[in-house]
């Protein structure tokens, strides 16, 4: 069981997996933050149909498992899209300028990124909304009494405070993105958990493989927590974050 550590080759697999996990999580977090903010604004829209649709969207994404959503994007959408588009998506293309030379991502990467981003965006939207709700309503009234327009009130009174309140919970959601990215192994994306499982299957060194992967995850989550603490002086992101 504890017979030595993993051969360098397998450590290489694990580090490659960590790279995919970090890259996927970073991209998904950025997309989810932007999309989450937009969804929050739509959710608070004075138009009832818009607010209702946004509420239904958020509820649908928050109340179904990420795993099922990933299966839907990976297996379901590939069956719904026209064959020509699937062929195009699966064929390699060069993206961006030659200098970057980034390879065309495989379809499981696209589906994983889409699924993880949409799922996380719904949770981020709720964190933004909680932040906005926690700004005392009297401040809006005060702004109006000073003759400010509602745009001015939003930009210079509500949002700066709401973002300050929401940033620690949002950091907690970024931690959840890192942890949730592990589910993309189920659609065959070669990230950290997938690599750990592969190494375990090849070497039977389950303890070493899962131990190293666990350490990598704890390290990544601790880095986010440490950043949140250093930058904003919060002891840690809140513990009860919905996931």
């Amino acid at each position: 069981m504890f017979d030595g550590f993993l051969a360098p080759r397998y450590i290489g697999w694990m580090i490659d997996g960590l790279g995919v996990t970090l890259g996927l999580s970073a991209l998904a977090s950025v997309i989810a933050l932007v999309l989450g903010f937009v969804l929050c604004v739509l959710r608070l829209s004075p138009s009832r149909p818009v607010a209702g649709l946004a509420a239904a969207w958020l509820s649908a994404f928050r109340n179904t498992p990420l795993l099922v959503q990933l299966f839907f994007w990976y297996f379901g959408v590939s069956a719904l899209l026209p064959d020509s588009l699937m062929a195009w998506l699966n064929a390699p293309h060069r993206i961006g300028v030659e200098a970057f030379g980034a390879p065309w991502p495989p379809f499981e990467m696209l589906a994983g990124l889409l699924g993880l981003s949409l799922y996380s965006a719904a949770f981020m939207a709720e964190e933004f909304r909680a932040g906005i709700y926690s700004v005392a309503p009297g401040q809006t009234a005060a702004g109006r009494a000073l003759g400010m327009t509602s745009t001015q009130i939003w930009i210079s009174i509500i949002l700066p405070q709401a973002v300050r309140i929401a940033r620690a919970p949002l950091a907690g959601q970024v931690m959840n993105v890192v942890k949730n990215s592990s589910l993309t192994m189920a659609i065959g994306l070669a990230e950290l958990s997938y690599a750990a499982r592969q190494v375990e299957t090849e070497t039977f060194q389950a303890f070493q493989a899962f131990g190293l992967a666990t350490l990598f995850y704890i390290g990544a989550v601790a880095l986010i927590g440490g950043f949140s603490q250093l930058a904003w002086g919060r002891s840690s992101p809140p513990t009860g974050a919905a996931r």
Binding site: M1, M175, K179, N180, S182, L183, M185, S193, A196, R197, E200, A206, F207, F210, A213, T214, Y217, I218, V221, A222, T239
Partner: peptide, 22 residues
């Protein structure tokens, strides 16, 4: 803190694959 920092999937693997060995 450790239980909240690791993915659920990792903990399932730990228990499923390692409890028999350990």
């Amino acid at each position: 803190g450790l239980f909240r920092a690791i993915p659920v999937l990792m903990l399932i693997f730990w228990i499923y694959f390692l409890a028999p060995i350990a």
